[in-house]
């Protein structure tokens, strides 16, 4: 049972080679083996969405994947989103501007969920936004300010790409 499996994973553009026990959750691997603690763990049963990362560009819950399954795959976490340490990604900027976070624990999950959503839906309606974030729980904000932030982020992203 103490099988250890070598894996090679690309996270935020950096290639990591590690040996892992098969049962190691991807969320624990990212947080504790790689030290990328911006991805948070809220429920470990796939409901809260705090641990959302981009797995080959798709938002998934990292608590429902094993690290071995990431072998050969490409992951983006909250630490890899901003273009450089002095600038935030437009979604991060918009969350700041609209007071879309309070304790900030769920925030990385929301931001990662929203990145591909806004790339595919540059001009979403309130309803589409609420549907898009319905798999992420926030206990502080009541979601209103997050919805505002998504509209703002959409504008910022359009501006940036025009």
């Amino acid at each position: 049972m103490s099988q250890r499996i070598p894996i090679t994973v690309r996270v935020n553009g950096v290639t990591y080679q590690r040996e892992v026990e098969p049962r190691l959750l991807l969320s624990d691997f990212i947080r504790h083996d790689l030290g990328l603690t911006g991805t948070h763990v809220g429920c470990e049963h796939g409901v809260c969405g705090a641990c959302t990362i981009l797995f080959d560009g798709q938002p998934v819950r990292s608590c429902l994947l094993f690290a071995v399954q990431a072998d050969g795959h490409n992951i983006l976490t909250i630490e890899g989103l901003a273009p450089d340490p002095d600038h935030l990604h437009p979604i991060q900027e918009a969350f700041h501007d609209a007071h879309a976070l309070q304790c900030g624990f769920c925030t990385p999950g929301f931001v990662m969920t929203l990145k591909p959503f806004l790339e595919e839906n540059p001009d979403p309606s309130d309803e589409e936004i609420r549907e898009a974030i319905s798999g992420n729980l926030c206990r502080c904000t009541g979601y209103d300010h997050i919805v505002d932030a998504v509209h703002l982020a959409a504008d910022k992203m359009k501006e940036a790409s025009s």
Partner: peptide, 21 residues
Amino acid sequence: MKRNEDPRLLTGRALFTDDVH
């Protein structure tokens, strides 16, 4: 005023208890 703590929280740099190693 926008919040001073936000940039740390938004980039995954803020220290929560489980981040202590």
